[in-house]
Design a protein around this nucleic acid. Structure first.
Lengths: 212, 212
DNA sequence: ACTTGTTTTAAACAACTGTTTAATATTTGT
DNA sequence: ACAAATATTAAACAGTTGTTTAAAACAAGT
């Protein structure tokens, strides 16, 4: 688990930790190429040379940060999918955990998708993690329920898109939506909380049309 | 309307047009800060100095490109909202047009949201365009239908999020989804086409629960 | 042909980039 | 207390950045 603590959260961090946490903040806010080594060092309150002293190069530092962010990004998804709950509950809890996670780290989807759009092969190192979802058997479970007519007949790819769309986009579009409707930060946060219920009900209602 | 034509589409473009179109392609693919003036010039097959000769500076060129992309990005949305159709049809056509637009320009949502995340005040110039949606009366129309119990009781902000999530995210997450499910470009495109129907049915079904 | 204004070029500019170096400070083991 | 290892610093490095300059090529009007 990565340390998302703000700059002054702990005073007893090592220099390496300070740089790591500063890099995490700067990379997520600005992207991998739209920031400088000196900016990261300044954010950490350290000398530029220390960044390379501990991490060899900017790109190696970014690889480490990106790896840890991706782990966090994928973890709750995989965990819930691998649980023993019935599939309706899996989806419900998945969406709720995603909203909880994104509430704390709203910039991560934008960061991840943007880095991936510019460098698609960056994701290949995470195929093992992603395969855990396949191996968990959720997809097989879904196919069984579809065969029984209990779950709507649609491709697993589209089910994933459906769920993720309604979780991640509301956080990614925050700057756009705030201006379109002229609402404050606080108001938008309340909308996000209310939106979680809509996402759960709409997605589950659509995937299991015989429920009510 | 902007010219999204590829490099060799027209041979009789002026130097200014060549640079404009090259800048459009490069900016969308790499973002405003992750590309160089020389890269844009090379893509246009011209000298670096010409970029500044016609557009004064890289940032002024980007402002022009961003403006035109935003116009395209917002246009179909506004047009449909301003039409005279009943609201169910408005939403259906809105989603279908969004999918059509995004099928041709799948990188634009990522580009726009990313630029907006790093520079939120960049959107302020488009408030007039956005206000056209308000002035069209769609929101008032929705509130009336909600008062009649015909439309689900939920905030306009959340309705917007609901619709946009299911249109834009499927395109934005393409690199992620392709790896998660190990599908090719072509297969994913087919999923996107099939997904349009799901988006329409799910959203309208959720917003108008008495329809069945 | 010659002047005028416009377009295009190569070269230069200073500022900034990631990275390295070599010297200094600090910690650690004995 | 001292020596070895580690941590930190300021300065320098070569390459790239956006931008400007000054000269050249081109077009059009007379």
């Amino acid at each position: 688990m990565f340390n998302f603590a703000p700059r002054n959260a702990k005073m007893n961090q090592s220099a390496e930790e300070k740089i790591r946490n500063a890099a995490l903040r700067v990379f997520i806010q600005k992207g991998s190429s739209n920031c400088t080594s000196r900016e990261i060092a300044r954010e950490a309150g350290m000398n530029v040379a220390l960044v390379n002293y501990y991490f060899r190069s900017k790109s190696k530092l970014f690889a480490i940060i990106f790896e840890s962010v991706m782990q966090d990004f994928l973890k709750s998804m995989v965990q819930v999918f691998s649980s023993e709950l019935p599939i309706r509950e899996k989806i419900r809890i998945l969406i709720e955990r995603e909203f909880e996670f994104l509430g704390q780290h709203p910039d991560i989807p934008n960061f991840v998708l943007n880095e991936l759009a510019r460098n698609p092969q960056a994701i290949e190192g995470f195929i093992p993690v992603l395969n855990m979802v396949n191996e968990s058997g959720v997809f097989d479970e879904a196919k069984k329920l579809q065969a029984l007519g209990e779950m709507r007949q649609m491709d697993i790819v589209q089910i994933t898109i459906l769920i993720m769309s309604n979780c991640q986009y509301p956080f990614m579009a925050q700057p756009l939506m705030k201006v379109i409707h002229g609402v404050s930060n606080e108001t938008y946060k309340e909308h996000l909380i209310a939106h979680k219920t809509h996402a759960v009900n709409m997605v589950i209602g659509y995937l299991f049309p015989n429920d009510n």
